[in-house]
Amino acid sequence: MIQAKIVLFSFLLGIGTTLWAQKTPMVLIKGGTYVPLYGTADKKPVAITAFEIDVFPVTNAQYLAFLKKYPEYSRSKIKGIFADKSYLSHWQSDFDYGKNNLSNAPVTNVSWFAAKKYCECQGKRLPAMDEWEYVAMADEKRIDARSKEAFNKYIMSWYEKPKTYANPIGQTFKNYWGVYDMHGLVWEWTADFNSIFLSGESRKDRDTDKNLFCGSGSVNATDLMNYAAFMRYAFRGSLKARYTTRNLGFRCAKDKVAFVKTFQNLR
């Protein structure tokens, strides 16, 4: 309940401070720790400080509104170093996502630079990879569902569903935090997407990271779990910041606002 109040509160505040019509609601993610797939250098779980994250990925309509305000990020204007040729290539034109794309489908074919800029213009930022993974390990009922077989099967099954990028946001399950579409819709950019270095030769990577792997305590994770997460890391490893792909969108996050903390302390 408290959480819902916070959401509502920050949501109202959000509306107060901006005139964006289709503002994405955010939820608070409480701090905690988790052990990522690749473990950590100091063999301790990663600490996540509380932050807020968009409930949905950014949509075509929202991105269009952004472009109208910042036309230098439109398809024909964006600089080559910030996005490759497929940037928004599925759109009709610079300021029209066309009839074939739903207004509430996630925007994809967006580079990391563009995604970062979008979030900054909302007073937000891209989530860190650890933050993203932390939120993504929750299913409907628990914070960490990674050892649950059905959860992993659900994630894996997305890999076999074609053209999910055309689906509207908010159709997948609502997770423990109240966040949608972490799995089953599109891949998502994170701020430090390539901080886990994958050479592209996964067998070699597995070798060199062996120590991380064994020391991390994530050995207890099931093989299924490893495979589902492996694919996200492999995907991120294949990217460069100017790349855009049809199955890759993003959502924004931001640091927990100070007054929320006060609010919480009062409780």
């Binding site: 592209g200 490893g237 294949s238 790349y243 855009t244 049809r246 199955n247 890759l248």
Partner: peptide, 10 residues
């Protein structure tokens, strides 16, 4: 393999 990891659309 080390030289050919390729993202979708690339």
């Amino acid at each position: 393999a080390t030289s050919s990891l390729v993202a979708p659309g690339h």
